[in-house]
Design a protein around this nucleic acid. Sequence first.
RNA 1: CUGGGUGUGGCGCAGUUUGGUAGCGCGCUUGAAUGGGGUUCAAGAGGUCGGAAGUUCAAAUCUUCUCACUCAGACCA
Length: 568
Amino acid sequence: MKISKLVGERTKEVPSGVIAKSHEYLLRAGYIKQVCNGVFSLLPPAFRVQLKLEKIIREEMDKIGGQEVLLPVLMPKELWEESGRYSSIGSEMFRLKDRAEHDMVLGMTHEEAAVHLARNTIKSYDQLPFMIYQIQTKLRDEPRARAGLIRVREFIMKDAYSFHTSKEDLDEYYEKVKDAYFRIYKRMGMKNVVSVKSDSGMMGGKIADEFMLITDIGEDSLVVCDNCDYSANMEVAESILDIYDSIEQPTELVNTGDSKTIEDVCKLLNVKPYQTCKAVCYYLSKSKKYVIAFIRGDLEVNEIKLRNLLKEEVVAISVDHPKIVAGYIGPKNFKEEDIITLYDVSLKNAKNLVVGANAKPYHIKNFSFNRDFIPETFVDISKVKEGQKCKKCGKGNLKIVRGIEIGNIFQLGTKYTASMNMTVHDSKGEEINPIMGCYGIGVGRCLASIVEESSDEKGIIWPISVAPWQIYLCPLRLDDENVAKTTLEINNILEEAGYEILFDDRNISAGSKFADSELMGIPIRIVISPRSLQNNEIEIAIRKTGEKIMCSKGELLKTLKSIVDNLG
RNA sequence: CUGGGUGUGGCGCAGUUUGGUAGCGCGCUUGAAUGGGGUUCAAGAGGUCGGAAGUUCAAAUCUUCUCACUCAGACCA
């Protein structure tokens, strides 16, 4: 490819409003161009990378028995009504009408289509298990697209769906996919990838893992143990909650005046936040109920855990309920129709707490949950804090890091096969609903994530396995006869050896060429100039290390091979 | 959806407070010099200032409406 003909331009200036490194470099190096909010065109270099990513994914999916298919982007409303998601998913799904006024949707995920494809073609347990996958466009009307290719409204995703006769079989396959995913990320050149337990969100099902590239610009908070392999998304992470043991003291009603917040009360009564119990109020707009969540004063409520527990959207509010004394709420079963009371596990066996007295302006001192009030159950609704002890190993300290979700896997169970009535005959001749798993990888997001992880102040540094071109052929003074002749020769030698070459055929200054090759992130640059030809030498520059190696024309292929082997 | 910001040649920006029909850098074209880190000089092309309505003798600049983009949050696979 001649760079003079390459579509796209490279710029020195940083576009405004750009935070993510991958966003900046992909724009500046001429890889992507924004069409509207959250929608991008890929220019030739980016598309070449994308094809390489897809190739890696295909190979690994095929290795675990995947069969590639192509499901439609456009689907009728009816298909989504079968699963119930036509109504349960909100405005993040693109909806439209066809010319006959028929309601249609644009696919944001393809469980429905996968079941539709399989349910009339698979009839016997003999045909199970199987996995189908596709690499295709997904459309999601994101509330907020951001950071270039990291969060967009239209993107290419590899999504796979597996069908099994038993939970055990799914479990086994699930682990296989997990291994395949780690191989995929490794081959793509990503290093800092972990899998974490996660919330299954709109997909349904219980077991879910997300694959995260750990990086500061990540949108998700992850909890990882510094001692064992525990890792989880903040949404579902758990920790050991220290019990601060002490001897129970008699309760005491104290006038706390205007002190309502934990901070004020602590100051007034000279106690630490963990020696208090706070009440956080929520409202369920669907069922029109108030929720009072009691939790130890030093902790925060994890609203996603709360939502999953109540199976409904929760909204934090300041209460205006006649039975609730805002600022002085204490542990108590509110036996009102429209109030739900919850107690976090952090309160279990907690003693000598300062709690609200449910009367203004009083709090109660030395309140103990195993003496003064014993709730029916305690629930886990707290947010993990940095430094808490790991629940899995009991020793490690939990750290909170940020990550980009570059893939996820779910055990769906029979949510879709049951609702959409997909059955097969088992070995006893009985009809069963196959158990499903689904597995996604955002290809465009991987592309951006690789850049996020692998770049420097000069630009992108592509891993050689996914680079758009392996070699940047960079003659200086192409008007020099000897340079022109040698460049052509070398181009042919490299092409014959199977290398992909970006040929900088422009007659511009050396600095501009070097800068472009570095911004674009091409792993190897071969410089041919009058200066080096005087010694019958060619320069090979390695993007990643900045190293420069001189060699003769005859040694070129041999030298290159050892460099490439080293980079791979 | 809530709050803030921005919209001026292909890209990045100044000009808006104090109305007088556009300017800079990069890039592009032509010529010359230079020739290993975005080189220099000269000459050019290219915009009617997001859109609509209004005020005015006169609007990029003031008013109203509107659209788009963007940041933070809410939300999200």
